[in-house]
Amino acid sequence: MADNDSVLSAAAAWKGAPMALATVVSTWGSAPRPRGSHMLVHADGRFEGSVSGGCVESDIMATAAEVIAGSPFQLKRYGVADAAAWEVGLPCGGEIEVLVQPVSAEGFDPELFDRIADARDAGQALTVTTDLATGQSNLRPAEGAVFANRYNPPRRLLIIGAVQIAQALAGLARELGIATVVIDPRARFLTEERFPGVTLDDRWPDEAVAAYAPGSSTAVVTLSHDTKIDDPALVAALAAPTGYVGALGSRRSHAARRERLALAGVSEANLDRIDAPVGLDIGAVGPSEIALSIAAAMVAAFHAKVP
């Protein structure tokens, strides 16, 4: 799944300016970026995003300048079998095909960015189809050589319990581009000094989690070690199609947790959705390493949820 959040933000900021959009439409072998990855190029030379991790960006920018100036869309292929690909620096062993189209009614209609933003704000996915024969993108099904790009809602993490592990996990999530909310009704734990730049919510966790309506792009992780706080949050998270649900604690404490949640009406199938002890088993020691293991498990779950 391609991460295009920064590109979509740039599209909103640059709205109305001449732009070109480059998109990875095919990959072979060890391609540096997945299909659907975007690079948005402004007429003044600014750009956001990446189609190759830096290997062919210079060539793409030159092509984008031509397209912005009025040249037709271009479909370019880079691979180690081509001398030109080596010249622009794609030595990773893979091949990519990149579509460069104008951001216009004849290419990627600017209104599509608004439609994508509206869908993401509503927690919904949206698929844009592109006719590779004409270089035009729209929301309608198409025939022939078509590339379909799915834009999923932005990833979000709801952390229950403003504890030390939560501080480290919130920082990692920020670096991963995951919007984070820390939920804790205990005012002395939930402070801006302890969680700078993070959304804080002091409601009781069941109310807060339900209000965020978690879907497949949302993770809920309980860390408070207080059953009065963690259990209601888990009940709310498991009542929704939450993409990842994790709970801190030992196997013994989780067995007791399962009994409590079962008595609260949570089904066996939903209990099995809880990742507990939370995180990948990397032998983590200390809050930072535990946070790293949780972040890795969360990202793995997000990828597994992609259709």
Rank of each mutant, 00 (worst) to 15 (best):
A84L: 13
E87I: 11
V88T: 13
V88W: 10
L90R: 02
L90C: 04
L90N: 01
P91S: 12
C92P: 05
G93M: 02
G93K: 02
G93A: 03
I96Q: 00
E97P: 02
E97C: 04
L99S: 06
V100F: 01
Q101W: 03
P102W: 03
V103K: 03
S104D: 15
S104Y: 05
G107M: 09
F108M: 10
P110T: 06
E111G: 13
E111V: 14
D114I: 05
R115Y: 06
I116N: 01
I116T: 01
A119Y: 02
G123I: 12
T127M: 07
V128F: 11
T129D: 05
T134V: 09
G135Q: 13
Q136L: 10
R140S: 14
E143H: 10
E143F: 07
A145Y: 01
A145D: 15
A145M: 06
F147E: 09
A148R: 15
N149P: 03
N149R: 13
R150E: 14
Y151H: 14
Y151P: 04
P153E: 01
P153H: 00
P153V: 09
P153W: 00
R156P: 03
R156A: 09
L157T: 03
L157N: 02
I159C: 06
I160Q: 01
I160T: 06
V163F: 03
V163Q: 05
Q164E: 15
A166G: 14
A166Y: 01
A166S: 13
A166E: 06
Q167Y: 11
Q167P: 07
Q167I: 15
Q167T: 15
A170T: 07
G171Y: 04
L172C: 04
L176C: 14
G177R: 07
I178T: 01
A179C: 06
A179F: 09
T180P: 12
T180H: 09
I183W: 01
I183S: 07
I183T: 12
I183M: 10
P185E: 11
F189K: 06
F189D: 14
L190T: 05
L190S: 06
E192V: 15
E193L: 12
E193N: 12
R194I: 03
R194F: 05
P196N: 12
G197Q: 10
G197E: 10
V198S: 06
V198H: 06
T199E: 15
D201G: 07
D202W: 00
D202Q: 09
R203M: 02
R203S: 03
W204T: 09
P205N: 08
A211G: 13
